[in-house]
Design a binder for these strands. Structure first.
Lengths: 341, 341
DNA sequence: ACTACCTTTTAAACCGGTTTAAATCCCGGC
DNA sequence: GCCGGGATTTAAACCGGTTTAAAAGGTAGT
């Protein structure tokens, strides 16, 4: 038995045909007699031949890979509960197609642009996922310039040549606010994510709109930054107000759990003195004390859908429609209750 | 201006030399007159030429990429605070070498082996990082069979043909235990990670050994599974003991934070009634209430070192030495204090 | 002036596929 | 018995680099 893996030429000679025929048979191209196709596939099978990715890459000018660039503040290279499940979802699609996922974790700033440029210049990927979409996201123009297909995770505000995969955060946020209103809260504050992010402002506006629709005076919205440290800061500022809120809605679980800590450190009891809600339903949300009321989406399916959508584009479709996922659901736990009398 | 990117032939004709010479110049091969090299490099520069990865891949049979397979229990696709920083560290090495990182997140079981096989069969990577090393890890034999270079993150117990990158968890764990002993604790319990993992048992044995060295009777070691849910369970069992511990050392922060919640849910005050310590210094550790005493390593540097080590192997070195990183450091916060009188 | 021997450069093969243009087969029709 | 034409099949070019073997150029020795 030879150690080298068989090439298309080996298959061809074993089947008694030319390289070209093997290629045709493999790719299901018409014009070959069925008998010949069978003979070739049998030979390929016996030899255990799989076409070389590298050779195919060169001749068809494709990478057979998709890319994901995750931008993180250098100070907090912490993990977002979203990504592992999202990536697993992406993977579930790529595996069956023989594609790979190329990942870059870059620090915010010029590294980010360099990351995309490198992916494009080196021909590493056939398309990329645009996560953590920002308002007037400069990456959209960048990718157009680089001629790199993409899908945006969320709907960009400007016009975009790329399909969007959308998971609307607003219904979930509204559900949280309505839940608090039903409990009797009227002094509800919000700790938002950085307003540069589309999903952060979506949550913020849903917060404000839902209160407005209920005719309740909106309280302070504090700018957070999705980090635990930012959550603490924002919470302290809110609790220091002359008339502090009786409930705080955070734009993600990290800030909410940190806020929970801050409230407890300030001597408050949650939920008796203060109700707290998050967003994401991260693993810890269920297990902190009290359990965190939050909103659960389905990042696995998000990844799956994003991969399917991006692949349509990569496969040459020109009019790929946006994909919309079912919105996130409210998960009620112990951190929310009626306001103090 | 042409839209197509220049090829080596364009550079060759512009410099008035053959393709071969351009290749030699690019790769700094001896045998070319210095003047010729300069001329070629100048021409390449003017054209903005970069050699095609795909063509190089095919002719030199290398992928110019490294792989990381992260295995996660399908139920908890949660994020480990270790990986983002680890990956960023890896990236810092790969970027300058023009390499890419191929990531797979697979669920535990047969998916895992399939993942490595696919990476190898498709020639996606030149080497892989073996993370979450297990005792008698079957992946070592698998990678030998696949003829895929690797580095193990941690020292395997059996003999391994691969270099190891080691960050000793024992000093950190010992430091935690000693810290608790100094505070006066004598009833110290441990919530371990799954004993299949090398780093989990390293922490467990360090726990037991340090207590033994101090002549203190070791208390129960509960088996956890590194998840928050497991942390809760183990904590409940410990607190239900006839003589419950006054301090619990957890093998990671996720379990510790969940344990903190369980203790508080049981009506205990941390640290007055119970001291709690974690391992990892994840982002939330500082911000839960009380702040979590834990152990901090440097995953960025871990990634960096692992990438450098793996690349030595990939570059053909045969006797790559193991690399040892400075051990993790104790970080004392509010969750530990003297035991109740 | 001729040979010997380096140094420098090049032509061509090669990596392993895909694709195009042309060759070959096979059959019915006249 | 020969021709036309669709169905199959193949040879060869191509993707863009690397590498090897041989050619070309230069210098020195005699």
């Amino acid at each position: 038995m030879s150690k080298e893996r068989p090439t298309i030429a080996d298959v061809a000679s074993r089947a008694g045909v030319s390289k070209g025929s093997v290629s045709f048979a493999l790719n299901g191209r018409p014009g070959l007699a069925q008998a010949t196709v069978d003979k070739i596939l049998a030979a390929a099978d016996e030899l255990g031949w799989r076409p070389s990715n590298r050779a195919r890459s060169l001749s068809v000018s494709k990478a057979f890979a998709l890319g994901l660039v995750i931008t993180r503040d250098p100070a907090v290279l912490s993990s977002d509960p979203f990504f592992p499940a999202f990536i697993a979802g992406v993977e579930s699609v790529l595996a069956s197609r023989g594609q790979a996922l190329v990942l870059q974790v870059v620090t915010a700033g010029e590294d980010e642009e360099a990351g995309y440029r490198r992916l494009a210049r080196d021909g590493r990927v056939d398309g990329v996922f645009l996560s953590d979409l920002r308002h007037d996201d400069p990456r959209i123009d960048l990718l157009v310039e680089l001629n790199l297909p993409a899908v945006t995770l969320n709907r960009p505000d400007g016009s975009s040549p790329f399909p969007a995969v959308i998971l609307d955060d607003r219904p979930g946020t509204s559900a949280v606010v309505e839940h608090l209103l039903e409990l009797g809260h009227t002094r509800i504050a919000h700790v938002a994510g950085p307003p540069t992010f589309v999903h952060a402002t979506a949550r913020s506006t849903a917060f404000v709109d839902t209160l407005a629709a209920a005719g309740v005076e909106p309280m302070a919205t504090e700018a957070g930054d999705f980090t635990a440290a930012g959550g603490i800061e924002a919470t302290r500022r809110l609790l220091a107000l002359p008339k502090p809120p009786t409930a705080i809605v955070y734009a993600n679980d990290r800030m909410a759990i940190a806020g929970l800590g801050a409230a407890q450190a300030a001597g408050l009891t949650v939920p008796d003195d203060l109700s707290i809600a998050g967003f994401d339903d991260s693993e810890l949300a269920e297990y902190v004390h009290p359990g965190l009321t939050t909103v659960r989406a389905d990042p696995f399916r998000f990844g799956e859908t994003a991969a399917l959508t991006l692949n349509q584009l990569v496969d040459g479709a020109t009019d790929v429609p946006d994909a919309e996922l079912p919105p996130a659901q409210l998960v009620v736990r112990g951190s929310t209750a009626s306001p103090p009398a």
